[in-house]
Design a protein around this nucleic acid. Structure first.
Lengths: 114, 114
DNA sequence: CTATCATATGAACAGTCATTCAGATGAACG
DNA sequence: CGTTCATCTGAATGACTGTTCATATGATAG
C-alpha cells in the first residue's frame, strides 16, 4: 500500500531519524513565540538591560496593555522573568538561548542578501 | 511627553541599540515560518535527504495539497528549493541556516527540562 | 484609608492563516 | 493525442491570535 510509486524505504529511513511528534510540536510552539513582531521587539529590547512595562510600551510606541499581554505569554514560556521594584514590574531575559536563537535568525537575514 | 515617571534616558539608550523596525519585522516573519508544526516537520524531514512532495505527505500522514501549500511558502522564503525529476518535484533544504536555527531551538527545548 | 500610578486581566473584534475540496496544470508514455 | 500520475492552485472555511477597551488589582504615598 502507500502511493502509486514506491518510496516507502526512503520514508521509513527518514521517519526513523525524525524526532517525536511531541518534540516537533514543542519546537513549533517555541518558534511561534518569536514569530510575532511585538514579541521580537520586546525580547530584543531586553537584550541589553532589564526594563519595566511602561518603558517597553514607550519604547515600542504601543499601548501598555498590549505589551502586558505579550509579556505574560513570554513569561509563561519562561523566556522572560520579572521582579518587583516599588510600583514597577521589571522584566528581563530569562534564558540565554533567546539571544542565541534570535542571533541565528539575524545572521540568516543579514548574510544572504543576494 | 513621556509617562509620569521618567526613564526617557534609558529608553533612548535601548532605542539606539535596537535594529530597524524593518529588520525586526523581517525577523518576526522569518520565525513565523518555523512557528508551524507542519512546516517544522517538513524542514526537519529534509535534514537528511531531499524528498518529493508525495513522500513528505506520506511521511507526515497529511494531504498532499496541504504539503504543497506549505512548500510553496517555504520556497518563496527561500528556505527550500526544488527540482524536477520526471514527474516528481523534489524538494531540498536551500539554506544551512535552517539547520542552525532549528538546532538552536532544539537545544533550548532539550537542555532545560527542569 | 484614599488617591494615584503601574500593571494585569477579560471580553470582544478583526485580521491572519492552515487545511480541505474541487479542479487546473504539466510531464511522461503508449 | 489522450490518459495517467504528481503536483499545483484558488476559494471557502474554521480556528487561532494580537490588539483594544474597559476595568480590576496591587502597591505606594500622603
Amino acid at each position: 500500500m502507500a502511493s502509486k510509486h514506491d518510496h516507502s524505504h526512503a520514508i521509513e529511513e527518514v521517519a526513523r531519524q525524525l524526532p517525536s511528534d511531541e518534540l516537533l510540536c514543542d519546537l513549533g510552539d517555541l518558534f511561534k513565540l518569536f514569530g510575532d513582531t511585538t514579541r521580537i521587539k520586546i525580547l530584543y529590547s531586553l537584550f541589553e538591560s532589564e526594563l519595566c512595562v511602561c518603558a517597553i510600551a514607550e519604547l515600542l510606541k504601543m499601548e501598555q496593555s498590549a505589551i502586558s499581554h505579550q509579556l505574560k505569554i513570554l513569561k509563561e514560556a519562561k523566556l522572560v522573568g520579572s521582579r518587583r521594584s516599588g510600583k514597577l514590574n521589571i522584566y528581563y531575559l530569562a534564558d540565554d538561548h533567546v539571544r542565541a536563537i534570535i542571533g541565528q535568525g539575524f545572521e540568516h537575514l543579514t548574510e544572504d542578501e543576494k
